[in-house]
Lab assay of single mutants.
Amino acid sequence: ILQTYRAIANYEKTSGSEMALSTGDVVEVVEKSESGWWFCQMKAKRGWIPASFLEPLDSPDETEDP
């Protein structure tokens, strides 16, 4: 089962193997590399994304803190 994550910042791809993101995009993580790059898919797009640009979809938003 794939894990679902949300983009927390815009990411512009710098090579053909990467995938561009916009803040709020929801992606499915296909593979996690120890290098800190994750292979993700979103609709018909697939590519590598730095893991630091993603957060788990089920994590609470910062605005929901008590």
Rank of each mutant, 00 (worst) to 15 (best):
M42V: 09
M42K: 12
C40G: 07
K13M: 09
E64K: 14
E31F: 06
Y5K: 00
L21P: 01
A51H: 09
E12T: 11
A7N: 01
E28C: 04
A9P: 00
S15W: 07
E62H: 11
K32N: 02
E62N: 13
S33M: 10
T4Q: 15
E55H: 05
L54S: 00
V26C: 07
R6S: 03
K43S: 11
S52G: 09
W37N: 06
P60N: 14
S52Q: 11
G47Q: 03
E12L: 06
G24I: 02
K45I: 10
L21V: 07
G47E: 02
T14I: 10
A9I: 05
A44G: 14
E64S: 13
I1P: 07
D25H: 00
V30C: 07
E64I: 12
P60H: 14
I8K: 12
P66I: 06
L2V: 13
Q41A: 08
P50F: 01
A7Q: 00
W48N: 03
N10A: 09
A20N: 13
E28Q: 09
I49T: 07
K32S: 03
S59P: 13
G16A: 15
G24D: 05
Q41W: 02
T23E: 15
A20L: 03
D58N: 14
S35L: 05
E34S: 11
M42R: 12
G36T: 03
A7I: 06
A44M: 11
Y11F: 14
V29N: 01
L21E: 00
I49M: 03
L57Q: 08
Q41L: 05
S59D: 14
I8C: 08
K13A: 09
K13P: 12
E34M: 08
I49S: 03
A9D: 14
S17I: 14
I8Y: 02
E12S: 10
R46F: 08
M19Y: 02
E28M: 03
V29Y: 01
M42A: 14
T23S: 10
S52C: 10
T4E: 10
F39P: 01
E12R: 12
A44H: 14
E34G: 11
G24K: 03
E34T: 10
S59K: 14
L57P: 03
R46Q: 15
T14Y: 06
K43W: 04
G47S: 02
V30A: 04
P60L: 12
T14R: 10
Q3F: 10
T14N: 11
K43R: 10
G36Q: 04
Y11D: 01
W38I: 03
N10S: 11
P50L: 03
P60W: 08
P60D: 13
K13Q: 09
E18A: 06
L57S: 10
T4W: 06
Y11K: 04
S33T: 12
T14D: 08
E12Q: 08
L21C: 05
W48I: 03
T23C: 11
E28I: 05
D61W: 09
D58Q: 08
P50T: 01
D61H: 14
E31L: 07
E62I: 12
D61A: 13
E12C: 11
G16K: 12
V27W: 00
G36Y: 02
S17Y: 10
R6H: 03
E34I: 08
Y11S: 03
L21F: 05
S52A: 12
I8A: 00
S15T: 12
T4K: 15
A9T: 14
T23M: 13
M19T: 03
M42S: 12
Y11C: 05
Y11W: 11
V30E: 04
E34H: 09
I49P: 00
K13R: 09
L57K: 07
P66F: 08
I1G: 09
E62T: 13
F53I: 15
Y5I: 00
W48F: 06
M19C: 03
L57M: 14
K32L: 02
D58K: 14
L2G: 15
M42E: 06
V27I: 06
L2C: 14
W37M: 15
E31K: 11
D61S: 14
A44F: 08
V29A: 05
A20V: 05
D65V: 13
W38L: 05
Y11P: 01
P66T: 10
I8L: 08
T4M: 15
R46T: 11
D65F: 10
A9L: 05
Q41S: 08
E34Y: 06
L54N: 01
W37I: 07
D61T: 14
G24C: 00
D25V: 01
Q3H: 11
G36H: 04
I1L: 08
P56D: 04
I49N: 01
A7L: 07
Q41P: 00
V26H: 08
A44I: 04
S15Q: 12
L57D: 10
S35G: 10
T4P: 06
S52D: 13
E18H: 05
K32P: 03
D65Q: 13
E34C: 09
T23W: 06
S35W: 04
E28K: 08
A20F: 05
T14E: 07
S17Q: 06
F53D: 01
P66N: 07
L2T: 15
Y11V: 07
Y11N: 03
S17K: 09
C40H: 01
R46H: 10
R46L: 06
C40L: 00
F53S: 08
A9V: 06
E18K: 05
F39S: 03
S35T: 15
V27K: 01
V30S: 05
E12A: 06
T23R: 10
E34R: 09
S59N: 13
D65L: 11
E64M: 11
E34P: 14
A20I: 04
Y5T: 02
K43L: 05
L57R: 06
L2N: 15
L54H: 00
D25Q: 05
I49L: 09
M19I: 07
G16E: 15
A20S: 09
L2H: 15
D65K: 14
S17T: 12
E18D: 13
G36N: 06
K45G: 08
D25E: 06
A20K: 10
V26N: 04
Q41G: 03
V27T: 02
S59F: 11
A44S: 14
K13W: 04
K43M: 10
G24F: 02
D61N: 14
A7T: 03
A9N: 12
I8F: 03
E55K: 08
P56N: 04
W38V: 04
I8R: 13
L54R: 01
F53C: 15
A7P: 01
S59V: 14
G24L: 01
S35A: 08
K13N: 12
E62P: 12
P66Y: 07
N10C: 08
W38K: 01
W37R: 09
W38P: 00
M42C: 14
E62W: 10
E31I: 08
E55F: 04
D58T: 11
A7E: 01
S35V: 05
A7S: 05
S33Q: 08
P56M: 06
V29F: 02
M19W: 04
V29G: 01
I1S: 08
T23P: 07
T23Q: 12
T63W: 09
